[in-house]
Design a binder for these strands. Structure first.
Lengths: 230, 230
DNA sequence: GACACTATGTATAAGAC
DNA sequence: TGTCTTATACATAGTGT
């Protein structure tokens, strides 16, 4: 759109990049606004400008409400598939277009390029799938377990992992205590989190993670699932 | 954009609303993607379709990372002012209306779209990175843990996950024993794997997994790491 | 950075499949 | 729902202030 067709790649000129950001940011917010009104849906949009400033938009509800809905959404795990779907759609369209304009440019080269990219996407997807499977062992809802075998297997893996982490913790404890550093860990262990208003152990963990800024959001939904499951 | 000018108000016809959502959602995601690439900025976009389905987009970083950056951003409080600014700007523009009518079609070079897709692959890869980070909590080498905090956090996550899996296992045990099904699990629990030639517990687990064909190969490297670490 | 202009590239409403 | 087509409305790159 504009005088020339713009390649979708990082704009190297800083000034230009910021100008484009300003323009497109407004366009994007407008589109998000229109979508939220026309279709009566919750939309949350968060951007960080090149200079690090925060810009965001949300419809009627506050961003926080929408984020909450997001982290609590059971579909959360599957979310990344949407990007893949989009990818597939764009790719399909592209291929159709390439086929239609078969005569014009260099059909062979662009087709092979397409194949190559398709391969890469497939590879990426299978890797994602593999990782999803591996993550399911740890982050997945236990209710998905339907056989004793699998429950046993998961339990043993977790026990073993726990044992190793525990050993590592002890090593670190010894190291810190012998070097005279303050034993910051034991004081903040969840077993001493009783002062928290929350009594649900999962929420305690959540708060613990959050207060340490370590891995809060990405674990929220797991904990939520847990409270719902049992 | 389209045959007629559309009023920005809720589309009452349900079918129409959903069709429009589908179209505009894709457009919005595309725009968000272009902005994130062109201007090299973090963008997170979350939508809930009229039917309650979750759709989201994020650039290179995972949504969780961006949300975390958002939550921790000091400017957070002032955020909603941006919407007001936008409204004011739109109102200002509403005063001066101008019409332009131009049209011309030309065959789009698919090269830019190729680049677009290549960018998508990059995004895909960064999602892989994110998952790797999440997996590291569970599968990663404990020696990578350098602070007591992190050891504590990992331990608590593992304990909690273990607790949930254990509860699930008990449920399944009860279900099977009460339905008269043979208690296949206890017999093959690793504690009774003494007949195996391997004495290393980790290799025992590995063999256990392997013999049950459940999740063997993808866990190999974890166990390998374990034997190397200690 | 913001605003205005204008030529162009895009998105999309409608409609049909 | 997804997809394609077409006509039309919009967004925006480049430019100047």
């Amino acid at each position: 759109m504009g005088r020339v067709k713009l390649q979708i790649k990082r704009i190297e000129n800083t000034t230009n990049r910021q100008v484009t950001f300003s323009k497109r940011r407004n366009g994007l917010i407008k589109k998000a606004y229109e979508l939220s009104v026309l279709c009566d849906v919750d939309v949350a949009l968060i951007m960080f400008s090149p200079s690090g400033r925060l810009c965001h938009f949300s419809g009627n509800k506050s961003i926080e409400e929408i984020l909450k809905r997001y982290v609590n959404h059971p579909e959360n795990e599957r979310g990344r598939l949407h990007n893949q779907e989009y990818l597939r759609r764009v790719l399909g369209k592209l291929k159709g277009e390439a086929d239609r304009t078969y005569q014009e440019a260099s059909p062979a080269s662009s087709n092979s390029q397409l194949e190559e990219i398709q391969q890469e996407i497939l590879s990426c997807k299978s890797q994602l799938e593999d990782m999803e499977n591996r993550l399911r062992i740890f982050e997945g809802d236990p209710l998905e377990i339907t056989t004793l075998y699998e429950a046993e297997v998961r339990e043993q893996i977790l026990k073993e992992t726990l044992r190793r982490v525990h050993m590592r913790k002890q090593v670190l404890e010894e190291r810190f205590s012998s070097s005279g550093a303050p034993p910051t860990s034991e004081v903040q262990t969840p077993s001493t989190l009783d002062w928290l208003p929350e009594k649900d152990p999962q929420v305690q963990i959540l708060n613990f993670l959050d207060s340490n800024g370590l891995l809060p959001l990405r674990c929220l939904h797991v904990l939520d699932l847990a409270t719902k499951s049992y």
